[in-house]
Design a protein around this nucleic acid. Structure first.
Length: 475
DNA sequence: TGAAATGTTGGGGCG
DNA sequence: ACGCCCCAACATTTC
């Protein structure tokens, strides 16, 4: 056991359980300093959005509280990462720094810079895989090429994944050093002028404890019918773990291990478990794509999409953003997003299809809006999924797959409960019209165009238009 | 992880 | 009894 000082650099791994960097730091050192650096400019065009910052504030609060219970303190610093690390390393004379890797290009570059800095200062760098099942490099098909389609990729991964059992909480050791911490409030992560976060506060608790609770209740109550319930925005059918996964408040390896274990013991559940794990697989696939094609957030994965004549109409974009398109399921989704920083996955596909294929607005606009408003905003997932819907992505939805918002609404929100919850103007409409209010002429207290808008585009006409353009750019 | 258009089939009404 | 038409209902193709 070393009597030197070691640093644990927390990033998107804000948990105590199954955290390799944290675990090994305490295993090897008696004097460990856990730090978090908020570098507001990190990420360039993709620095943290507003909802994401709200989450980060609370996640750091809970992480610090959890560490306090173990007699430890999280040192928080605001500023440029390398500068802050340099100060901390020289002040503490730390001999080793532990962290878990991230895979966005800017984070990869940052890790390389940290290595350089540490070698200058004589500190050892110890890096772990803590945020993925498999790191993106080295996964190739039989020809030695990168996978471009999800299913073969995931089949290969499932064979390859061989996880050690999950790590427990480390054996913490109390160590205090006169290293000042910036206060959480000074990071300015919470809304300032307008308090828009009420819906987020009512919905989420950004703690590791809550992540584990959600996972347990998901397994106990919803896993058995997951493949059906997951499609229903009007029902609680998913795990709600996406923000926790982004911030690493639950370990993806822990999820995988737990469900694989359960799958062996319970044959009837195993199909549902495969379905859930395949969603984890899409997350892995997104990271894989981003790693191999770092321009994924900006550039079309399929380059022939570069000539797509996207519509730049600001009014249409605004109507979509505000949930005023006149299509109830679309508007419900967009308002759910603004209200609680999250949207049901089925509805994400519907609103994204509507933006790119009915309004013909670039997936980049959608990705930007989601980035700022989602508590689970994640560069790999967000970019890969937007490109998937628009047709420009890897293994993407074919260009002619255009969601009909009325049919999707009737199929997945059959009683209109989801729409009524988020679009109050429609609360009194009968089920018959809830997904096509323009066909209602008689309801008392409702007149289309007064409290709720007429559709901003005609579905059939815009669909035909989209098909023509998509077909044209393909040649 | 669609939807619409088009094609096919088979039962029933009806002259 | 027979042929014809209509049109669900389902299947296949196309976008």
């Amino acid at each position: 056991m070393s009597e030197e000082v070691a640093i644990v650099w927390f990033r998107n791994d804000l948990r105590l359980l199954d955290n390799p960097a944290l675990y090994h730091a305490y295993k090897n050192y008696n004097r460990v300093i856990p730090i978090y650096i908020f570098d507001e400019n990190l990420g360039g065009n993709w620095k943290r959005g507003e909802a994401s910052k709200w989450w980060l504030h609370h996640a750091l609060f809970h992480l610090n509280r959890d560490l306090n219970k173990e007699g430890c303190t999280l040192i928080i610093k605001k500023g440029e990462t390398l500068e802050q690390l340099r100060k901390i390393l020289s002040f503490t004379k730390a001999k080793e720094i532990f962290f878990n890797s991230l895979y966005e290009l800017f984070n990869i570059k940052l890790e390389q810079e940290v290595e350089k800095l540490c070698s200058l200062l004589g500190a050892k760098v110890t890096r772990f895989k803590g945020n993925l099942l498999l790191e993106p490099w080295g996964i190739k098909n039989k020809q030695g090429n990168n996978f471009n389609a999800f299913t073969p990729y995931w089949n290969a991964c499932k064979k390859k994944v061989n996880l050690p059992s999950s790590l427990p909480k480390p054996e913490f050791k109390v160590y205090h050093i006169q290293l000042s911490s910036d206060s959480l409030d000074d990071l300015n992560l919470l809304p300032k002028k307008v308090d828009w976060a009420g819906g987020l506060r009512d919905t989420w608790e950004a703690s590791e404890k809550r992540a584990l609770q959600l996972f347990e209740t998901f397994i106990d109550n919803r896993l058995g019918d997951y493949s059906e319930l997951r499609e229903r925005p009007d029902i609680i059918g998913t795990s709600f773990l996406s923000p926790y996964l982004h911030f690493g408040q639950i370990s993806v390896e822990y999820i995988y291990n737990s469900l694989r274990f359960l799958s062996c013991r319970n044959q009837t559940l195993s199909q549902e478990i495969e379905k859930y794990l395949s969603e984890i697989g899409w997350r892995e696939f997104s990271y894989y794509l981003l790693y191999n094609f770092p321009r994924l957030p900006e550039e079309n994965f399929k380059s022939y999409f570069d000539k797509f004549p996207w519509n730049t109409d600001k009014k249409l974009l605004k109507a979509w953003q505000k949930g005023l398109t006149g299509y109830p399921i679309v508007d419900a989704g967009m308002r759910q997003l603004r209200s609680i920083g999250w949207m049901h996955n089925r509805v994400r596909m519907i609103v994204a299809s509507f933006l790119t294929k009915n309004l013909l607005i670039s997936w980049r606009e959608g990705a930007k809006w989601f980035w700022d408003n989602l508590v689970d905003a994640d560069l790999a997932n967000n970019s890969a999924n937007w490109q998937w819907v628009s047709g420009s992505g890897a293994d993407a939805a074919p260009y002619f797959r255009i969601f009909n918002p009325v049919l999707q609404g009737e199929k997945f929100d059959p009683k209109g409960e989801y729409v009524r919850k988020w679009v109050l103007e429609l609360a009194l409409l009968p089920n018959m019209n809830i997904h096509k209010p323009w066909e209602n002429f008689s309801s008392k207290g409702f007149k289309i165009g007064m409290t709720y808008p007429q559709p901003i585009v005609n579905y059939n006409i815009s669909r035909a238009h989209a098909l023509a353009i998509y077909k044209q750019i393909k040649t």
